[in-house]
Design a protein around this nucleic acid. Sequence first.
DNA 1: CGAATCTTTGAACTGAGTCAATTAAAGTGG
DNA 2: CCACTTTAATTGACTCAGTTCAAAGATTCG
Lengths: 278, 278
Amino acid sequence: MTCTTAPLTFAGRPGIAEVRCTASDVLRWFGLPELASAATERIGYPMRRVHAGSSLLIEGQPFERLHLVSGGSFKCVQTDSEGYEQVLGFAIRGDLIGLDGLGQGRHHSGAVALEDSTVVPLPMRELLATSHEVSALETLLLHAAGVEVSRRSDSQYLMAAPSSEVRVTRFLLQFAQRQAALGYSGRRLRMCMTRRDIASHLGVAHETVSRVLTALAQDGYITVSNRDIELLDPSALNELQRVTRGRHARERHADVARQTTGAAPVKRAQTAARVTLQ
Amino acid sequence: MTCTTAPLTFAGRPGIAEVRCTASDVLRWFGLPELASAATERIGYPMRRVHAGSSLLIEGQPFERLHLVSGGSFKCVQTDSEGYEQVLGFAIRGDLIGLDGLGQGRHHSGAVALEDSTVVPLPMRELLATSHEVSALETLLLHAAGVEVSRRSDSQYLMAAPSSEVRVTRFLLQFAQRQAALGYSGRRLRMCMTRRDIASHLGVAHETVSRVLTALAQDGYITVSNRDIELLDPSALNELQRVTRGRHARERHADVARQTTGAAPVKRAQTAARVTLQ
DNA sequence: CGAATCTTTGAACTGAGTCAATTAAAGTGG
DNA sequence: CCACTTTAATTGACTCAGTTCAAAGATTCG
């Protein structure tokens, strides 16, 4: 809930010089290192810490700056009139938060830190002014917007999946891919969000997320240890994920299960068999 | 599938001068009339016709221009490896199509005309060049990106709804709102898409869309005549739409049904009664 | 170390998906 | 303009995946 507007010092200790970074750093974190130049090297931004659980952005707030996540992670949420919190997505290092504000000058969604995190607040006014001289920043902005739209498409694709098993699988693969793109392991995942957050994002009950994860683990596709998930068989997961609405969803699924029967433990194999028999 | 790249003449008749519009027109259609100026008046764009059922954009195509819908409507789709067509959204007059291409320089989704339509193709290269002098175009671009992100959030909210009844209701209300914003009636809706398209967008079976619509009609909330839908009781629909995951969804629903019992025909009232009794 | 939150698991019920069949609408071509 | 085909929409019957409710572990955090 706290959202200090005054310039923050690192670790919240006043008197210590605040940590800063350059526009070049921003471009590199965002994934456009080739745009860094002497000009961007001269532009500096202060950084800001956000503690686990506190809000970086609140819905309805006027849009004044974007935030680049330089460390940690966030969930982007929209709270409806009943108090239900819809998770729209998760932001990790390199992601820009707040682009929805570009439309109406007001944020339509909030952002909550999932762990202690750091961001680079980028004042829009300044950014726009500078971008006329330094075209790299203009490119950054448009590129970011495009990436955000694409990412939302992916989320829509997630949520449209016919079965919750497919939804969870798609989510795992997408998350793994993003981690891999940052240079982390695409197999050993540390999930920074709760099951409830995942459930909200996928549009299912949180118990279902739990059940699907244990089911996938029983099939030998993954291992689950609390928030640590390892993808044992990404290609098999890829098959699972492909199942779509309309065409023989169950058959396909059975096929996949059958292929891995050797590795699949008893309980789950029965399910597959029962399905196949019909 | 056809996607002519050569400059088109109106109604496809060669020899007739092509229909053009100015950047001022574009700004007005998009909803930013206050940005039109003498400068934008001097910038001209040709327009293009797209026949019902043909593709304006194909997935994977390199991103070269945005398209402003000046008449008609489109569905934006993503086709997965199994051939299943996921509808990401619908574009009507004033909407910009193709913003997802800003990210990777390549379109991740396609666009298909739902009826005979007209668009204004805006070449990105030209747009970027001009925007350095005419800031209205820069504003347009950023504004459009923000609106697009917000719109996707709305879609995610749609798809996350716990029951298909809520999903369809939210969709109707959102669609009505967009029509109203364009100056059309927000009550009498002409749905330009098929039930299947709606179903895909909401992540439900197309039969379910049909059933929900007839159910809503039986309750007296709407009337349905093929693609013409009239919202009889928007405020009641608003109540329905508010139902979220987790808290007494059924109770709430029953409450709503009870309020309108007077107007509600027999069959549906029974349903409500049964629910209330539990 | 206790409180709170998160996670898992079980049991029961039902909403919505699938399959199937009929009706309606919209094209198509003679 | 009217048969004919094709596609869209509705409706019914049946079944199961997933929600809800409940309760027991696990983990985190003051």
